[in-house]
Amino acid sequence: MEKFNAIMSVFLIIIFLFIFLPIVYMLSNPGDLNVLFSDEEVIWAFKTTLLAGAVSTLIALIFGIPTGYILARYDFKFKSFVEAVLDLPMAIPHSVIGIMILSFIYGIDIINFIGRYIVDNFWGIVTVYLFVGIPFMVNSIRDGFLSVDEEIEYVSRTLGASKVRTFFEISLPLIKNNIISGIILSFARGISEVGAILIIAYYPKTVPILIYERFMSFGLDASKPISVGMILISIALFALLRMFGKMRGR
């Protein structure tokens, strides 16, 4: 049995190092980190990325809470179809998402004026971030409402709280951690997007686009420090997520 466990552990160690070593190497050989604070283009890219991430996450939250609630509490015709469609952005290749959105906007006459605001525009970035991030928000919030015992809501009603009041005072606070993890996941998914952004909104440049561009034009060393900045943001988001995940488990 001991030998068996040792063999199993070897697999764990290999796959752990496969992910861990490149990260550690990157962080310990970041190149010239000064560009993060002095290169205007880099600073702008970070600002654009974080702002687009924040805006799209806010929109995802506004739509995700009611959507998650309905999916958790009610049964209706074609519910599993609706759920499957809402999950689909996770399965579609990223460049295809870009092509899809673009051809939809330009394919339908009455909406192709929107193209102006989407293509190579900040709102194009927001649109893509929302498209790829919304499944994480909806799923996280739906799972939260599913975990709230309906009897708790019923009791609140019998104690005199209206449906609306019960929703805001009882149910919503109980899924606080699901909301936070939904925010973090959809934000993180958004800002990491490259494929669809390349097609829809190369400008204004987001960080992943800038990393790609610097790599293509100037090589590895030019893209390294920006990548380190991005890794630090991702690790920070992930640490937050783990923290709230632990709290939810309590």
């Binding site: 015992d149 009897e151 708790i152 019923y154 009791v155 009603r157 019998t158 104690l159 005199g160 449906k163």
Partner: peptide, 16 residues
């Protein structure tokens, strides 16, 4: 609706 009935309700799992 329940909130207008003035009934005391204690479910099986207490639902605190």
């Amino acid at each position: 609706p329940p909130e207008k009935r003035n009934v005391g309700y204690v479910p099986q799992n207490y639902a605190l």
